[in-house]
Deep mutational scan, measured.
Amino acid sequence: MDVFMKGLSKAKEGVVAAAEKTKQGVAEAAGKTKEGVLYVGSKTKEGVVHGVATVAEKTKEQVTNVGGAVVTGVTAVAQKTVEGAGSIAAATGFVKKDQLGKNEEGAPQEGILEDMPVDPDNEAYEMPSEEGYQDYEPEA
């Protein structure tokens, strides 16, 4: 019985440690998101679009440190934060509304985080759909 109880105690310690790591990862992701939003706020009209992409990228980098179902929630929060940063930029006159959601080359930025393969159960990952990809044929 002692062996059984000791095993359960060790398992509990492992769960607590994993929860603490997840909590730490979420806190880091939130900190990076805040950094990115402050970065966007300090940019001029020309830099705002690039700044919004930076927020998304920093958040995406930190999301990889967070495991399990938390990833889905962090990704949703990050996307809403990026959308909010863009709205703030438009409201303050840093950028025109028609410039939001495009990178410096004018290509749409939507789907940055949505296409990231995420499995809350950590069982399997699927690649994003290939609808947006084109076949590449090298020139002879």
Rank of each mutant, 00 (worst) to 15 (best):
E123G: 02
G67I: 03
V48L: 12
G14C: 03
P138H: 05
V71W: 14
V77T: 07
S9N: 10
T44L: 11
G31E: 04
A85T: 09
G68I: 15
G132R: 06
V95P: 02
E114N: 13
V15M: 04
V95S: 15
A91Q: 06
V16H: 10
V15F: 03
L38Q: 08
N103D: 06
D119P: 14
A19V: 05
T33V: 06
Q79T: 03
V74Y: 15
K34H: 13
V15T: 01
A17G: 12
V3A: 11
E83C: 05
K12R: 15
P108E: 05
K58I: 13
G106Y: 14
E137P: 05
K43P: 00
K34G: 02
N103I: 13
A76I: 09
D2L: 13
G36I: 11
G25K: 11
V15R: 00
G36Y: 09
K80N: 09
V118P: 07
E114G: 12
G31P: 01
V63D: 01
Q79H: 03
V55A: 07
K10D: 04
K34C: 14
G111Y: 11
G47K: 12
G51V: 13
Q62F: 03
T64L: 11
V52P: 01
V15N: 00
A89R: 05
T75M: 14
M116G: 05
E126I: 15
T44A: 12
A124N: 10
G73W: 02
A89C: 03
E123V: 13
A69W: 07
K23W: 11
V82N: 04
A89Q: 10
K80M: 14
Y133N: 07
K58M: 10
A27V: 04
F94P: 06
V118G: 14
E105S: 06
S9V: 05
Q99F: 12
K23S: 02
K43I: 15
E137L: 05
G14K: 10
V63P: 02
K23C: 05
V40G: 00
E131Y: 05
P138E: 08
E46K: 02
E131W: 15
T72R: 08
G36H: 10
Q79M: 09
G93Y: 13
E61A: 07
A30V: 15
G101W: 05
A91Y: 07
A56T: 13
N103F: 06
E126C: 14
I112V: 15
P108V: 10
K21M: 11
K43E: 01
F94C: 00
S9T: 05
K32S: 12
V70G: 01
G84E: 08
M1G: 00
I88C: 13
T81R: 08
V26G: 01
D98S: 08
V3Y: 07
E131G: 08
A89G: 15
G31V: 01
V66K: 04
K34E: 01
S42M: 10
K6E: 08
K34R: 12
G68M: 01
E126G: 14
L8Y: 04
V118S: 08
T33G: 08
E20S: 02
V40F: 04
T22Q: 00
M116I: 10
E57T: 09
K23A: 08
T64V: 11
I112F: 04
V49E: 06
A30M: 11
E20M: 08
A91R: 04
S129A: 13
T72Y: 06
P117C: 10
V3P: 00
V74W: 06
S129T: 13
